[in-house]
Each structure stands twice: as C-alpha cells, then as structure tokens.
Design a protein around this nucleic acid. Structure first.
Length: 426
DNA sequence: TGACGTCAAGATCCG
DNA sequence: CGGATCTTGACGTCA
C-alpha cells in the first residue's frame, strides 16, 4: 500500500489552525490554553485525514508553542492526557503514520555547545510528542545533518558524536534527510550507515544538490531502502516539484499530477510512503492519493473534491467547469485523472475579470437572502470597484470569506475558493 | 549585517 | 469600532 501525505497544516479545514504567542506573553496559563487549542486543532486534522483516506501526515512543531524551551517542563502530557490518548487512538486505529520535522534551526552538529544543547532538547521535545500519543518507532522524526563549517568530514563526525549522546527514545525515531545546500544524498547515506539511521530521500533537494547526476532517483531510493529496518516501518521519501516562478529548490504551489504519476511509475514501488512538500498541502495530497489508489476511488470522494474546487474552476474558466460537470453525468466512466486534468488545465489559465465576477456572484448567492443591507451594499461596491480596476479581486474574496465565517457556510469554508493560488499555480 | 523560510501574532493605519 | 495591511518574532548558518 502506497501512502501519500502532507505537512503540518490543512487548507479548508475550519478550526485546524495552530495558535502561538510571542515569547514575552508566554505565561504558563497562556501556554496551556494554546496547547489545548492546538490539540483540538490536531484532532480535527486527523479526522479530516481519515475521512479523505490520507494516511500519512507530518505534525507541526508548533503543536506545543516553545515546546523545546519554555514549555519543556510544563506538565502538558499529564494535563492533556485524555486529548492525547484520543488522538493517538485515532492515528493507530486508522493505520495512519505521522512524523515530525524539526526545522532548519535545529542543528545537532553545531560548533557551538549551547546550540547543540538546544538541538538535543528540541529533539527530546519532538520525541515526547510522539511518545505522548502512544505511537511506535515507525512514527519518525526527520532531521538534516546540519552545517558544514568549512569541513564536511569533521561536521559529519560531529553529528555522529552528538547522535550518540541522544536518549534511545529519540534515537529510535530519528531519520536523516539530504538537504538542498550542503549534505547530498551520498553524504547522508554514508553518515547514516555508520549509526544505522534510516535515510529519507528528497527528490528536489537531490536535484538542486546532487551527489551524482548519473545515479537515477530510482537508484537512490533503492539504496535508501536498505537503511530501513523492520521496526522503522515502510521506507519514506519526500517528493516536491520546483516552483517555476521562484528560485531553485522552492516548492511548487501544487503537485502536477502527470509528472507525479510518471515519478511513481519510474520508481516501480508499491510499498513506499511519499510525503509531499508543497504549498497547497492537503489539496495535493488528496489529488495524488486518489489518483494512486489501485482500485477505483469511491465516487463520493471525487464528488467532494469537485465540490471544493468548483468556484476556483469557475473563476478561471467556464469551459473546464462545464467539462467536469459533463464528466460527472456518467459516473461509471468518470475517472479521477480526467477530472484532475481539467482542474489543472483550468487553474493554469489566467483569471479574467468576467469569470472572476461570475464566480464571486455564485458565491454571493449563499448570502444574498440573509445579508444585511450594509453587507449587500459593501459587496456590490467591492465588486464594482474590482470591475472598474480600482481595487483587487482579493478584497472581494476576503469580504466573501468573512461572510462565510459569519454565516457559517461550511460548504464554502471547506472549499478551496478562499484559500488557494493567490499567485496562480504556475 | 542581512538573507534565508515560515507562519501567525502584534502593531498600525484607515474609514 | 472593525477590518485591512504591514511588521515582527523565533530559530542558526553563511555570504
């Protein structure tokens, strides 16, 4: 079984936002309040993932604000034991695999002792989250090797020395990933093999920072597979596509389905976990997982997807909108790939004023009978200003988004219209 | 010293 | 007053 997943946050999942605060406002009471909120948010995301058959997910490091410093001694695992065990139960019983990924500022091989000490505490914090959910060692912590400091061999050696200092409850979860600047996949494989650490291959990092251009992605993945022991669970990789408008190594807005499926065909593997690193998060994860599912996806999942995309498509192109509607007329032959081809084609088209107004008016239809006179005037005014070119489309959409929140229009709040592709998908 | 990346909090401005 | 928009924070390395 191939699992495809996404990292940290989900668009169109009301109440799933992580909250934080500035360090200076971080009292114990405030922190515990935020942690309670964040655990509830996490539960909503997990339930959303289960509903959408997404069985791979990275939990945000922001779950416990200042979890490696201020909150480190807070008794959150005890205070929130019930919430934690309920979430852990959902993860285990659904067969979901989760992970965490300390950021680029957790540097275990630093030349500075205080930085190393903080890295160790940070790793302990992350492992503690997974432990508190009652999850086994196949739920991993992903880390980069760290800095080079002008001497890669010495920097790699320092990593191994400091790795040896980690508690076993951290070590058993730790996996190493190749990065886009310093340590390429061969560096990582060589270092990891000396401590039996599993290796995550990241295709975009490898493209930007290759170890050997003659070795294919497929070959690196198969070399990495040897680092995964049975207790580590199935091999994991990271998959990303280049954002064509941004600098080399930047993640794309969305995963284009054809190159993704081509990648999967190339690697010829059916037992791999693929973590997508992409701006639109859950949106791409659902697309990829539906298109990869060996049996025909349940048609209702595809129909729910259509419902979420509907007004984005209308905003870009009425011809694809009609094509997709036509597709659903015959549910026996309607394939997910066909739908996503239309979706991507539409989203790649520029937004014309006419189609944007059309979409906005469709969305306005949810409110026109319950909106106040002031709200009606405000919407008409904003729409008019947009048509005259004196204000941006964004102000119309933010206004509609506010109304959706006020009138609790879940259909709109759970859709993609308010959330996606402010700068286009290409 | 600023760029890098990432998100939301906080601050400020505006009608 | 509420809402929109701008700036800051938190992290460590490296040019």
């Amino acid at each position: 079984m191939m699992r495809t997943g996404y990292a940290c946050l989900a668009v169109g999942v009301p109440g799933s936002e992580m909250k934080s605060c500035l360090q200076k406002n971080a009292s114990e009471t405030r922190l515990l309040e935020l942690i309670g909120n964040n655990l509830d948010a996490l539960e909503k995301i997990i339930l959303y993932n289960i509903h959408n058959h997404i069985l791979l997910f990275r939990i945000s490091s922001d779950l416990i604000p200042f979890g490696s410093s201020l909150s480190y001694t807070l008794p959150w695992p005890e205070v929130y034991m019930e919430k934690l065990s309920r979430i852990g139960q959902l993860i285990r019983s659904s067969g979901m695999r989760v992970s965490m990924h300390p950021g680029q500022y957790t540097v275990l091989n630093s030349l500075s002792d205080p930085v190393v000490e903080r890295a160790i505490l940070d790793l302990k914090y992350h492992a503690k989250v997974l432990d508190s959910l009652g999850l086994g060692p196949e739920h991993k912590l992903i880390l980069h090797l760290g800095g080079a400091y002008g001497n890669k061999p010495a920097a790699r050696k320092r990593f191994l020395i400091n790795y040896a200092r980690l508690d076993s409850f951290v070590q058993r979860r730790l996996v190493l990933e190749n990065d886009d600047k310093i340590f390429h996949i061969r560096d990582v494989l060589e270092t990891a093999s000396q401590a039996s650490i599993p290796v995550v291959f990241d295709n975009l990092h490898n493209f930007v920072n290759p170890a050997d251009k003659d070795v294919t992605e497929s070959e690196w993945i198969s070399l990495c597979s040897q680092t995964w022991k049975p207790e580590d669970g199935p091999q994991k990789i990271h998959y990303a596509q280049q954002n064509p408008l941004r600098k080399s190594g930047s993640h794309s807005e969305t995963i284009l389905i054809d190159p993704f499926l081509e990648f999967c065909n190339q690697i010829r593997r059916s037992d791999l976990d693929i973590m997508l690193e992409v701006k639109d998060k859950n949106v791409s994860a659902i697309k990829c997982s539906i298109c990869l599912s060996p049996s025909r996806p349940e048609i209702h999942l595809l129909e729910e997807e259509w419902a979420r995309y509907k007004y984005n498509i209308l905003e870009h192109s009425s011809s694809e909108y009609l094509s997709i509607r036509q597709l659903f007329r015959n549910k026996d032959t309607c394939t997910s790939l066909d739908m996503y081809h239309f979706v991507e084609a539409a989203l790649q088209k520029p937004v014309s004023t006419g189609s944007a107004v059309n979409a906005a008016e469709h969305v306005w239809g949810y409110f026109k009978n319950k909106a106040s006179e002031a709200e009606k005037r405000r919407f008409q005014k904003l729409l008019q200003n947009y048509q005259l070119g004196s204000s941006p489309l964004e102000s119309v959409k933010t206004n509609l988004s506010r109304l959706a929140l006020k009138y609790q229009e879940d259909y709109l709040l759970c859709g993609y219209y308010f959330h996606l592709y402010k700068g286009g998908i290409l």
